[in-house]
Design a protein around this nucleic acid. Structure first.
Lengths: 260, 260
DNA sequence: AAGTGGTCTAGACCACGGC
DNA sequence: CCGTGGTCTAGACCACTTC
């Protein structure tokens, strides 16, 4: 297996010129990352399954024609990613699939994971300037122009939640937002706008359903509901969206794992 | 600075014999870990503050008389711990103090961090055998003997929550539990019983205050409250305690960060 | 130009698990 | 006994920032 080298410190290795790289003709990718990617792909493609032994450091080194430290570096990265377990005197094994905790997923993804069909009804979609509390949560100056989107969200045709989402108009045009009755907001950000979501801060409390909420969610007025406020971030300190959701507490459970 | 070597591959280095180790007379601690600990201590003691530059790889290597790779390894570990930021062509800098998210802290610790004085009133403390739902949550056989502790919890003399906690009788005697009106449950586990808490799974929903709860929490009957069920784990798969808390939603906010 | 972290080499010895 | 990961050496070149 040939790699595209980052440097050419040794003389005998014929690594420059028209070499066959692992990922097309990419250069400047460190050797250890190329090896890392190659093995990662073999794991994720299902070729290697949980518990299977990976090639040892020495085998990897010989296979790709790199030094032991470089092969080691690649395997170390896999271990840090949690894809692999390394056990002295035994070898490197494919790790069992991780259960991810506290993962940021959209309403659509949550429903899908429970096998429910999702759809949304847009209750309101307006441009507003006078939501200063929201502006401050989005780290924007008071009086900023915001798009406000209110949706009633269904799982298998039962109402689950009312969600109000705000974003800066520069991030999202109003007519883009109009498609959100059938599209996921996360999908819009990640796929169409190419904005990589990083994390969200969420605050949960309990409140009572007001008449309008009760009507939409088909629950008695005054019934306890879960209120979740969420600030969504991409990489960097600038939030991209703020949302406030009212969830039927009989349908929605909020689960997290905390570590000591 | 002399270190206690793990191996003695080079000949000239006088590392064996009566060397001065970083941490007393410890042996078998890898060089990179000793260096790592030494620098860590300098950061945590306050000698090095956020933004301060750390010795470069080359300086560390010379200082401790190790190779570049070993010094590098030590600094890499610091980076993985989040104590340090490494920037190419600039140097290694002490990272700003991390804000920890989703950290498992006790009610007492939460209150203390908000500057409130805590105390608890024990409402019930009984030995029970017929809580099969709880037993199953604790991964114990049905009919197991459990201790049930119900406490009303105050912050600055205002009632904040009602908490019911169950644990196996083998883990905690009843008279030990009697001290929990003034002690922290976490403190009891961690300090007296030397059980290291690892994580907790929590489930949150909203419910309405029943008459008894309303009276204790001094809120109207039927008011929305936050219900948090928590399963507490030490290392290993066996849970150590289960608790169910009812929190005044006007006093308690539940905050987490989720990552994509 | 000097210094930094990032990558890489071609070896080495150690402790330990499985055969 | 052999192979494994873990540790370690004594160098090297690169891209980059700072002065």
């Amino acid at each position: 297996m040939k790699l595209t080298p980052l440097i050419n410190s040794s003389e005998g290795l014929e690594r420059s010129g028209p070499s066959i790289s692992l990922i097309g003709m990419e250069r400047k990718i460190p050797l250890y990352k190329q090896i890392h990617s190659a093995i990662k792909q073999r794991i994720q493609s299902g070729e290697l399954k949980a518990g299977d032994p990976i090639d040892s450091e020495r085998v990897v080194a010989k296979h790709y024609g790199v030094s032991l430290m470089t092969a080691r570096h690649a395997l170390k990265e896999l271990e840090l990613e949690g894809l692999v377990l390394r056990r002295p005197a035994v070898g490197t094994l494919v790790a069992p699939p991780r259960i991810q905790f506290n993962k940021l997923i959209s309403f659509s993804e949550q429903m899908a994971s429970r096998g429910l069909a999702v759809h949304s009804k847009i209750l309101a979609l307006v441009v507003t300037k006078k939501e200063d509390e929201v502006s401050s949560r989005l780290s924007l100056p008071c009086g900023s122009t915001l798009i406000k989107l209110e949706r009633l969200r269904f799982g298998d045709n039962d109402p689950f939640a009312i969600e109000v989402t705000y974003f800066a108009q520069k991030d999202l045009s109003k007519n883009r937002a109009e498609t959100l009755n059938r599209r996921s907001l996360f999908g819009l950000f990640e796929n169409e706008l190419q904005r990589k979501l990083a994390y969200a801060d969420e605050e949960v409390d309990a409140t009572a359903a007001d008449p309008r909420t009760a009507k939409f969610l088909k629950i008695p007025q005054g019934a306890p509901i879960l209120r979740i406020r969420q600030i969504l971030y991409t990489a960097g300190p600038q939030p991209i969206a703020f949302s406030r959701g009212l969830y039927r507490s009989d349908r929605h459970s909020f689960v997290i794992r905390r570590f000591r």
